[in-house]
Design a protein around this nucleic acid. Structure first.
Lengths: 168, 168
DNA sequence: TGTTAATGTATGAGCGTTCAACCAAAGGAG
DNA sequence: CTCCTTTGGTTGAACGCTCATACATTAACA
């Protein structure tokens, strides 16, 4: 690959295609869940992660990592879910700084009602359109990208020289 | 693949990995552009699409399609970009319902200044971590998913029976 | 030609996310 | 033991997006 700081034609094509698919897929998932269950996809994920763990309880920080949320985002989200009665916040006995989020029975029911429609949408938009090989490829690609995102590695500093050249 | 309405272990693994990567990648791109150029990724795309077209001018509707924006979202976005002086709205001579969005010189300069840092971030997070084969695979996967999203095809209606079973 | 439908866009309210600031509890170093 | 730093979490303002609505222009058609 030519390493002049830009993308090759193949890379640009792949990038724009992937971005478009990812953006529209996100929108489709949000629309389906909002319409059928009254909650956005990010909130569904919070309930799903809680439901999948013994005691249906997680520390806020761990839940934030599992749902790819900032702590602030999660805090706001859980506040809303708590107002709805889907989640309850309880103090953590081990560490008095921490807060535990516990899925309520009502929250579990909402999740259980929403799950089939959500899964059907994911299958229709993703897995029904991919071969088993492509599913494996998608996993590998996701893992590769994820590897560069988890560690707060340095974003490469821009080159002002290039900017100046282009601005001409 | 078992077709009982749920995901296989491989599918679930691929799905969660892909979702995590996509979510964190989006956040990383938005952060970088917001920090270094003062605009979100979606706004960068609008400027980029305009800059790549003869006359640097597009109908709002076409621009919305190219940027995977709703018309409402684009209208708000262009309103903001126009306040900043990056874009100007001009009436369309052919169809008096339409509005043309034209990239201004100032807007082009902003884009040119932002582009190198953005491209560097995309390369660092995506293309530097993928093989050429994976890039081709990503394009194919994106195209396959996109094929089910462009046409406003029916979202599969949920199965209330499954929901009831699960809610038990 | 007059009526109705479809198209292209804009607007405002409501909501979710980000960012910066803040506070409290725990850990470490002197 | 005190100070300082780190960690865990919350809050409010600013902003972008969604949704519903509205309006003007064009197309279809009887």
């Amino acid at each position: 690959m030519t390493d002049d700081g830009w993308l090759t034609a193949e890379q640009l094509d792949a990038w724009l295609t992937f971005r478009a698919a990812s953006t529209l897929l996100d929108a489709a998932l949000d629309r389906q869940l909002q319409r059928d269950a009254g909650l956005p996809h990010a909130y569904y994920l919070i309930l799903a992660m809680l439901s999948d763990v013994p005691g249906r309880t997680l520390r806020m920080s761990d839940l934030a990592l599992m749902t790819q949320s900032s702590q602030s985002r999660l805090s706001h989200a859980v506040a809303r879910l708590e107002r709805n009665g889907w989640v309850r916040r309880v103090p953590c006995p081990d560490d008095r700084r921490s807060t535990l989020a516990r899925l309520t029975d009502a929250g579990f029911d909402v999740l259980a009602a929403a799950a089939p429609g959500h899964v059907a949408t994911v299958r229709a938009h993703v897995f029904d359109r991919l071969t088993a090989e492509q599913v494996a490829q998608l996993r590998e690609i996701g893992a590769a990208i994820l590897g560069g995102l988890d560690a707060p590695q340095a974003c490469p500093d821009r080159s002002p020289a290039q900017a100046a050249r282009l601005a001409e």
